[in-house]
Amino acid sequence: MQALINVMEQTQVAAAAIGLILLMLLEQAHPFFDFFKGSIRKKGKHLAANMALGLTNALLISVFFVGTWLWASNWAYQNQFGLLNWLAIAGLPAWGHTVGAVLLMDLWMYLWHLINHKIPFLWRFHRVHHADPNMDVTTASRFHTGEIVFSSLLRIGVLLLTGIYLWELLLYETLMFAVVQLHHANIALPPNVDKVLRTIIVTPAMHKVHHSRWQPETDSNYSSLFSFWDRLCQTFRLHDPLSSLRIGLDEFDTPEDHKVQGLFTMPFRKGTRRPPEESNQEL
């Protein structure tokens, strides 16, 4: 089992690195928004700040949480505790356990994302992600360390209650992060392709709406991997034309806000969410 986990971890890192490089090249060739037009230095600073957060969080998880998640998963399996283990006793096949694990983790990610928008204390940390006015593939790694700590601690309970194996969690995270990189990338898929794909997964056209400066749009499209959670929970929203979207948060728009120090201190500085306002944006 440990050998499988090691392979999954290596695959996860390789997939994330390959996805980052390929999508950055595609962004450079065909950007949707001209965020960095004529300024390689600006793009470099943006990359460095976002990846500083991403790498810090990856190190934190590797050192402090992976071992704890393994313990929780093993304890649930050895004690036949958790939903999927109970279903396995009732006859759930191995493939059903894995499919169930992916679906349950993605449902949890939807709920966790929604909670981060609804609870002001958690929003203070999550807004570090939303404040990026130049959303691209590196924004997929731009989460405050505080948010990662809260998420990682709660994941212990999720693993115990669901009975998800650690290798299944790593499989889910590999799939999920590949899609997260795609839908944060500063690209646009052909409209017909995006329409077909978003019946199953979250696409760039769908997730760009979530990063809108207009709060009713910010508070929509919470899904990470599978898009159908938003339809089931009636939080799905589109914006037409997509090119008219304004990305970021009005309250954090200075260059200092987006330096590494500014990102780490953002949750502890004043910021005011805008109330819903009249708009001609279409659902």
Rank of each mutant, 00 (worst) to 15 (best):
P190N: 06
F143V: 10
E147F: 00
L153V: 03
F143N: 09
P191C: 04
H207E: 13
V137I: 14
L161N: 11
E147S: 15
L175S: 01
A205Q: 13
L182A: 04
M206F: 15
T145Q: 01
T199P: 00
G163Y: 02
L153F: 08
F177V: 00
H183R: 03
L197D: 05
R198W: 10
A188Y: 10
I164E: 01
L169Y: 00
Y165W: 14
A205E: 15
V196M: 10
Y172M: 05
V137D: 05
V158F: 00
I201E: 06
L197T: 06
R142G: 11
L166W: 08
V179R: 09
F150Q: 10
L169C: 04
A185F: 02
L169A: 09
D136M: 10
S212M: 11
A140L: 06
A205C: 14
T199G: 15
R155D: 06
E168N: 05
G163A: 07
V137G: 06
P190W: 02
Y165H: 15
L161D: 11
T199A: 14
I187T: 04
F177S: 01
L171F: 07
H144F: 11
A205G: 12
S141E: 12
H210N: 14
D136C: 13
L189M: 08
L160E: 11
V137P: 07
E173F: 03
T174W: 01
A188H: 12
M206R: 10
P191L: 06
L160W: 10
A188P: 03
A178S: 12
S152R: 03
L182Q: 05
L169G: 02
V158P: 00
T174E: 00
S152K: 03
V180R: 09
E168R: 03
H211M: 15
T203M: 04
L182K: 07
I201Q: 08
H144D: 02
T162P: 07
K195H: 09
Y165N: 11
I156V: 15
L159A: 14
L153M: 13
K208H: 15
L197V: 08
T138L: 10
V179T: 06
V158A: 00
V196S: 07
L161M: 13
R198A: 11
M176G: 02
V179K: 10
L166H: 05
I200E: 09
A178E: 03
L154H: 06
M206T: 13
F150T: 12
I164P: 03
N186P: 07
L160S: 13
I201R: 14
S212K: 13
L153G: 07
K208C: 07
V149Q: 05
T203L: 02
I187F: 10
I148R: 04
L175V: 00
M206L: 15
V209T: 12
E168T: 02
V202M: 05
I156H: 12
M176Q: 12
E168H: 15
I200S: 11
T162F: 09
A188I: 03
